[in-house]
């Protein structure tokens, strides 16, 4: 008998699962309907209040946040961030079409490289698929134009998110994933990111910049 059959056999025996036909229907219904449970009221707000809550919660998680008027000023906001921190005017990004549509050529001093990170990039730029006001969390799907290495290897991770894509709760991202990839389907990686990397492993003292980015900068795009 295979380990699979042995384990499932023990489970069925322990649950006394024979002859209970209703179980399969219950399980199937739950998988199909994916009922939501308790949704905290904290983030059930109108869109503008939701964006404000997102900014507040992300800041509380030690991210920095800038709100800009439109996508045409995002490259300037990236340059300003790098300059304010005395970082080289260089970023790495994927081929995300929303990022591609922005006027990077206007930033004459900024060097933009494309593709996944090799570990030598100081700063990267990603576009989040969505964000969650409840906890100040970003949601990033991996894919052809969105390398996951950009979220973890550079010291500074700059994430652009449209104000209109900021939902109230985790469940709004689950709905987006279903709409985009199909029921029960997912991209290889969905990263929920809440603030920069940290560790409390030495004497419970919280320190930023463990293995992932030391700094997380969020650019919220209105309009």
């Amino acid at each position: 008998m295979s380990a699979r059959e042995a384990i499932l056999g023990k489970v069925r025996k322990a649950l006394d699962a024979s002859g209970n036909a209703g179980r399969l229907d219950n399980v199937w219904d739950r998988l199909m309907e994916a009922p939501a449970g308790i949704i905290p009221t904290r983030a059930q707000l109108d869109p503008e209040a939701r964006v404000e809550l997102f900014c507040r919660m992300a800041t509380q998680a030690a991210a920095t946040v800038a709100r800009v008027a439109g996508e045409e000023v995002v490259p300037a906001a990236v340059t300003a961030y790098l300059r304010a921190r005395n970082l080289p005017a260089k970023v790495r990004m994927g081929g995300d079409r929303r990022l591609k549509a922005m006027p990077w050529v206007n930033e004459r001093t900024l060097q933009v490289r494309h593709g996944p990170s090799d570990g030598d990039d100081e700063a990267s730029v990603s576009h989040a698929a969505a964000a969650i006001a409840e906890t100040g969390t970003l949601a990033l799907f991996s894919g052809k134009d969105n390398p996951t290495t950009l979220n973890f290897l550079p010291d500074h991770h700059i994430v652009v998110v449209d104000a209109a894509d900021i939902g109230g709760d985790l469940e709004s991202v689950m709905r987006l994933a279903r709409a985009r990839y199909g029921k029960g389907e997912m991209p290889r990686t969905l990263n929920f990111i809440t603030g920069p990397s940290r560790s409390g492993d030495i004497e419970q003292k919280l320190l930023l910049g463990a293995h992932g980015p030391r700094a997380l900068h969020i650019i919220v795009v209105d309009g």
């Binding site: 996944p116 969390t137 991996s142 894919g143 290889r188 969905l190 990263n191 929920f192 809440t194």
Partner: peptide
Amino acid sequence: VYTTVSTGPRRPNDPDG
């Protein structure tokens, strides 16, 4: 900070993973 949902290996056009 990181809640990561991983599903299968990298997809045909994925640049990393």
